[in-house]
Each structure stands twice: as structure tokens, then as C-alpha cells.
Measured scan of single mutants.
Amino acid sequence: MATGGRRGAAAAPLLVAVAALLLGAAGHLYPGEVCPGMDIRNNLTRLHELENCSVIEGHLQILLMFKTRPEDFRDLSFPKLIMITDYLLLFRVYGLESLKDLFPNLTVIRGSRLFFNYALVIFEMVHLKELGLYNLMNITRGSVRIEKNNELCYLATIDWSRILDSVEDNYIVLNKDDNEECGDICPGTAKGKTNCPATVINGQFVERCWTHSHCQKVCPTICKSHGCTAEGLCCHSECLGNCSQPDDPTKCVACRNFYLDGRCVETCPPPYYHFQDWRCVNFSFCQDLHHKCKNSRRQGCHQYVIHNNKCIPECPSGYTMNSSNLLCTPCLGPCPKVCHLLEGEKTIDSVTSAQELRGCTVINGSLIINIRGGNNLAAELEANLGLIEEISGYLKIRRSYALVSLSFFRKLRLIRGETLEIGNYSFYALDNQNLRQLWDWSKHNLTITQGKLFFHYNPKLCLSEIHKMEEVSGTKGRQERNDIALKTNGDQASCENELLKFSYIRTSFDKI
């Protein structure tokens, strides 16, 4: 039985969820670079991206490699990797027998973001014989899940209580170790020597080791999670996991709180800001991140802002960003909400898709409305799209047979046209069989910064309504002859009103 693990408890099935942008060198404390989270699957090609990484700022997932063999891993080693800020997950990587050479110096898994409450997941690794993470000293947050690894031993010899604050939620089941077939031998045991430290858990006094050649490092209890030197002297209180010299914040392997210019500090002093819960960055760093993602459509890219001495992905609820200094300031009234469309555009074809934009005031991208039916549609669209004030790209209304009016965009005031449909149009209306009105132009103002209007096959939309939009939106004169079809717009509506004058002759039985 794995020490510190839980057996036999019912657990939810383990679901495996399925960018080499360097964020800056980590400095003297770390020998390499800070790398983003990685999802490495199918083959070993991307694994080489770990070569210079000291910190993975995010998670590391290595999974679904069915053609790899043990010899493929023999020359692979990433000794610079010290810390993973989120979680480490391995799933069905064939041929991998140990992690001792792959990650010989991995010391800390912070667990800032977890995989279903777990910071370390080893699942269905069919050839893994031992973990071998002999320098792993601290899992700051989260638990361990090690399950269905039929060859995995050296679990009962690990004292997880020396690595985690609590072992109650560890789930370590259905491994070879369960069948008591392992016969784990710690260093020196074969020669009758006791080389590794022994600890007591559940009444068992057991030597602690990761492999037959690597003991588990056990520091004096007084050192807590700070770690200790090879001689057993406690590291500085700002260290986490390990250090090369005692009581020196510049000799830590990793930091308990924050890293700044080669030393570990309790908090980031001005003019620095907390970033990702582990390091200090200056304003320029946060500003660069903001600008890199301002026009990016890459998933996970955030326009970072500053709030409460932190550089964070977005302002919290009730705050909006001051564009001059990136500071989050309290909103006066309802907060603006910028919604970034991942692929640059979004099609609204149902109430469900409209709900995804609920509360958005600025759309960074283009909207395509293609709704053919739905219950209580006008009210639903207004509830979900009615706060949109600005669209950076274009607005396209296409084959939306259920629409009679666009009044559900009740606050839309600006279409920038930074991206144009077919390279020309910022407003595009095609084949809307029941569209009769755009907006009530006596109450609604709309500016279209650039781009043209396109109207074709809107049989109940009168040309007068379209011409009014040209005047109000500032697009009059931009359109070419064929942009607004004269014969297919309003051709099934009563669009022309003329005053009919009647004269009559009164007659009676005795007068003409």
C-alpha cells in the first residue's frame, strides 16, 4: 500500500482533458527560462521544448504516446526543470519506465491550478516501474492521483506527508504495488545497510526511497516546507523545498512566496507586481503582455491589467481597466465587458449561442446573426445582446428569417469595421425574408467608422429604411451602385405612401 494514499474509496472516473512563447529569463536562482504550460502528445517531438525550461508557468501534460519505446527515452533528460506552477499529468506514455532521468531536479509542483483537485496525476502508464522524482520536495496545493499503472512499484516507500501538507485526498490505487509483488529495495538494503531515512506512518517504520538508488530526502521537522541542505541544516524561511546553503534567500532552489532578481522575498516591493503567484514583474512586463494579447485571437491570451499590486489576466467583477495605466478602477454604474472572439468572429444561430455573449459591452471581433427560429426570440436576444455598444469588426445579418427588427441591439452605437466582410463591408444584410426595420432612427444613433453597407434580398425592408441608415451611420456616399439592390429590397412591402385627393359631386333626387 502506498504510504499516505487512500484505498478502496469510491472515486469519480478520471477524465483526461485534452506555445513556446518565453516569458522571460528567471535569473540567477533558476538555471534556465520560464516556459508556458505545455500539452505534449502523440510523439516526442515537442518534448524537446523543455530543454531550457527551469519553470513551467502553467501545467505540463505528457500523454497518448503509443509508439514510443524505452530506448526512445534513454537520452532524454531535462535537468534544468525545477518547478511547475500548476500540475504534472502523465497518461498512456508507452515505453517510459521512470522519471528519474527525465526530470531529475523537479523540486516543486505548486498546484496553482489543479487537474480535478490533483497536482500530480500518473494514470495508465503501462510501462512505468517507478516514479523516480527523487528531488520532489513540495506539492504546495492539491493532491496526488496514481492509478492503474500495472508495473509501478516504489510507492509504499514514499512518505507523501513530507511532500504535501495533507495526504487525506491522495488516491493511489490499482498499481502493481497493490499486489505486494514489488519487493522494493532501498539503497544499501541488499548489503544489509540502512542508507535512507525511515519514518513512521500508520504504525509502520519504513525506509523512504524513490528507487533502488535514490533515497527520499527527509528534512528535520523544524525546517517545515522550506527544505534543508545535504547536511540537514534548514533553508531560509522564504525558500521552498530545498537550498544549497542554509538561511540564505539567494540560495533557495525555489521560493515559498515570490522570486525577485535572484532572491526569494515575502512580497513584491514597489515598483514590482505579483505575477502568477510566484514571481515579481515590473510595469513594462505587464504592459507588454497586455499589448501582445490586445489584437491576438490565441486562446488563453489575456490583456493583463494591474489590481491590488498584482498583474492579473482581467479586472475583477465591479472594476474596469483604465487604459492609460492598466489599473483596475471601480465602475460607475454597470461595468464594461470586452469579449474577445477566439477566431475573430462568432455566429449567433440560437439563443444558446447568444447567451455566451451575455453582459458583453464591447465585441472584439465580428458578429454573424443567422437565426431561423426560436421561442420568445426578441426578448431572449435583447437579454443577451442588448448591452453590446461596440463591435470592432463587422455585423452580418444573414438568412435570419425569424427577425423582424434589429432593435434587440438596443445599445449598439459603434461598428468600427477594423475587419470587413469580403474585404469591403462593415454591415452586411443578406436574404432576411421578414426583416422590416433596422432601428427606430428617431431614437437610435449608430456610427460606422469604416467599410460599406450591403443589402440584398431583404424583400420587406424598404429602401427608405436603408437610406436612413446611410445618413445616420455616416456611410452615405461610400456605397457603390450594386451594394444596395434596388429590386430585391422592399419588393414585397408597401414602401411608397402617396396622399390621394378626392373630389365629389353631391346629387339628390331633384338636383344634379
Rank of each mutant, 00 (worst) to 15 (best):
S54R: 14
R69W: 07
C264T: 00
E181P: 03
F115N: 02
G333W: 03
D184I: 05
I82F: 11
S213W: 05
V305F: 06
N309F: 10
A119G: 07
V265M: 07
L64D: 15
V218H: 11
C328V: 03
N295G: 14
R145D: 03
N43D: 05
G262H: 02
R110M: 11
A198L: 09
R208E: 05
F103T: 01
R145K: 11
L63P: 00
V253H: 08
S98C: 05
R297T: 06
E180H: 00
K251Y: 14
C328P: 02
P246F: 11
A198R: 09
V108P: 00
G142W: 00
D277Q: 09
L164W: 04
T140N: 10
P70C: 05
D261K: 11
T199G: 08
L131G: 01
K251V: 08
S112I: 15
H290Y: 13
N43M: 08
T85L: 07
L332Y: 05
E124V: 02
L152K: 01
Y273W: 10
L289D: 02
D177R: 11
V121I: 07
Y319C: 06
S143Y: 02
R46S: 14
C293G: 01
L102G: 02
T199S: 06
N257P: 00
L233Q: 12
G37Q: 12
S284M: 12
S324H: 15
N242I: 06
E57A: 07
K193R: 15
E124R: 07
C223P: 02
D184C: 15
Q303W: 06
D261W: 03
T199L: 11
Y304V: 06
E97S: 07
N308I: 06
S77E: 08
R297F: 04
G58C: 01
V121F: 02
P316G: 02
I146R: 01
E238R: 04
P269A: 11
C235G: 01
G333N: 05
M137P: 01
R263D: 07
R141D: 15
E57L: 04
G142T: 00
D169M: 08
N309S: 08
N138M: 13
N179V: 12
L60K: 01
Q245W: 09
L81K: 00
L131N: 02
L88I: 15
C153E: 02
G58F: 00
C268V: 00
Q299S: 03
L50C: 01
N257Y: 06
L152G: 02
T189L: 09
G188I: 14
C235F: 00
C301Y: 09
C209Y: 02
V34G: 07
I84Q: 00
R256E: 05
P36D: 01
L90A: 03
R74Y: 11
T45S: 06
L240I: 09
H127V: 02
I139G: 00
K294L: 04
N170C: 08
R208F: 15
C255S: 00
Q303G: 11
V206P: 15
V218G: 10
L99W: 01
N242R: 10
R69Q: 12
K176W: 12
D277M: 09
P70T: 09
R69L: 05
L99A: 03
P270D: 11
F285L: 06
D169T: 13
P270T: 10
H28S: 04
I40R: 00
S213E: 12
L326V: 05
V108G: 01
V281P: 00
T157C: 08
L44P: 09
S225C: 05
P246Q: 15
V206I: 04
R110T: 04
N202A: 08
S237A: 12
L60I: 04
L29G: 14
T199F: 10
C243Q: 00
L155C: 13
C280R: 00
S244P: 04
D288E: 11
F205N: 15
S237V: 04
L29C: 15
Y259D: 14
Y94Q: 15
P316A: 04
H236V: 02
P70W: 14
F285A: 07
G111C: 02
C209P: 03
D247W: 05
P104R: 01
G227K: 04
Y319Q: 14
C243M: 00
H274V: 12
D159K: 06
R297I: 07
S213C: 14
T107Q: 13
G188Y: 08
Q303P: 13
P79M: 03
I139C: 02
D86Q: 11
P270L: 10
N117L: 06
Y30C: 09
L128F: 13
G95R: 04
Y87S: 02
H214R: 05
H48Y: 05
C328R: 02
P271T: 12
C252T: 02
L174W: 06
D39P: 01
C228L: 02
K224F: 06
Q216L: 12
L63I: 04
C255K: 01
T140W: 03
P104F: 01
F66K: 12
H307M: 13
R263Y: 07
R263E: 14
E168M: 07
P104A: 01
C182V: 02
A190P: 10
R41M: 05
M321Y: 14
F116L: 12
I172G: 13
T329E: 01
W160E: 01
R279L: 12
